Amino acid sequence: MQQDSVSRLALGLDSPQAVTGLVLAGGRGQRLGGKDKGLVNLNGWPMVSYAMAVLSGHVAEVLISANRNLTEYDALGGRVVRDAEPGYPGPLAGLLAGLEAAHTPWLAVVPCDTPLLPHSLLPRLATTIGDADIAVAHDGERLHPVIALMRTALADDLGQYLASGRHKVRDWHQRHRCVTVDFSDCYDAFANLNAEQDHTRINAQLNAVSAKKHQ
């Protein structure tokens, strides 16, 4: 544990001022009938608010990657960034917008549709990253490429990667020093809302978590 703390100190990750948070909310929401996922109501709150809460307190600023309903997102308190290219080119475009907008050496990114993420997410990524460029969450069964901590100095390389016509997140990760971080102890926290049938299930999980906190 002491070695991890020294590593975080050397990287500047012991301070929230070293990290910018980014919530990816700029997709089409095709599997939700075109709904703007980040603004879908969950237990009385827009879904993007849960992602912002996971980052809050661990970062200097929260950015929201969005391509529509910009006024609604702006009202939530995060700085809104848009894709440079039209047509919803994918999560890497939102990631590039975040990397370019950040004023810190590190960027922590989460999607808007995973509202149960643990509040220990960023500290655990920071503790494990070591001298790597990117730390990515793994729930014990699968990798979550857009739940990650990375150096903002990667912006130029990502811009070149996208300009070459490539858009696969994992392939871009493989161009850099990348480590996976084991979150198998909280596998359920990585459930995402991709379809209407997920809405009821995740709402129930949120209610259960809230009830447990007030016991």
Rank of each mutant, 00 (worst) to 15 (best):
2 Q>A: 14
2 Q>K: 15
5 S>H: 11
7 S>C: 06
8 R>V: 12
8 R>K: 14
19 V>P: 02
21 G>M: 07
23 V>C: 05
24 L>S: 07
26 G>Y: 10
27 G>S: 13
29 G>R: 07
29 G>P: 05
31 R>K: 15
32 L>G: 04
32 L>E: 04
33 G>I: 13
33 G>N: 13
34 G>V: 10
35 K>Q: 12
39 L>G: 04
44 G>W: 05
46 P>C: 11
47 M>Y: 02
51 A>T: 03
57 G>F: 08
58 H>P: 04
58 H>D: 08
60 A>F: 01
61 E>V: 06
65 S>V: 02
65 S>Y: 00
67 N>P: 08
68 R>E: 14
69 N>H: 12
69 N>W: 04
74 D>L: 06
76 L>W: 03
82 R>V: 13
85 E>M: 12
103 H>E: 13
104 T>G: 01
104 T>Y: 03
105 P>V: 10
117 L>I: 09
119 H>C: 09
124 R>T: 11
128 T>Q: 12
130 G>E: 01
131 D>Q: 13
134 I>C: 02
135 A>E: 08
137 A>H: 11
143 L>C: 11
144 H>V: 04
144 H>W: 15
147 I>F: 02
147 I>L: 08
151 R>F: 00
151 R>E: 04
151 R>C: 00
152 T>M: 02
154 L>T: 06
154 L>H: 00
155 A>Y: 02
164 S>K: 07
165 G>P: 07
169 V>Q: 05
172 W>Y: 15
177 R>C: 11
181 V>E: 09
182 D>G: 10
185 D>W: 13
186 C>L: 08
187 Y>P: 04
192 N>E: 03
193 L>Q: 01
195 A>M: 12
197 Q>W: 02
198 D>E: 05
199 H>F: 11
199 H>W: 11
199 H>V: 13
203 N>C: 13
203 N>G: 13
203 N>S: 14
205 Q>A: 14
206 L>N: 00
207 N>F: 01
208 A>D: 13
208 A>H: 13
213 K>E: 12
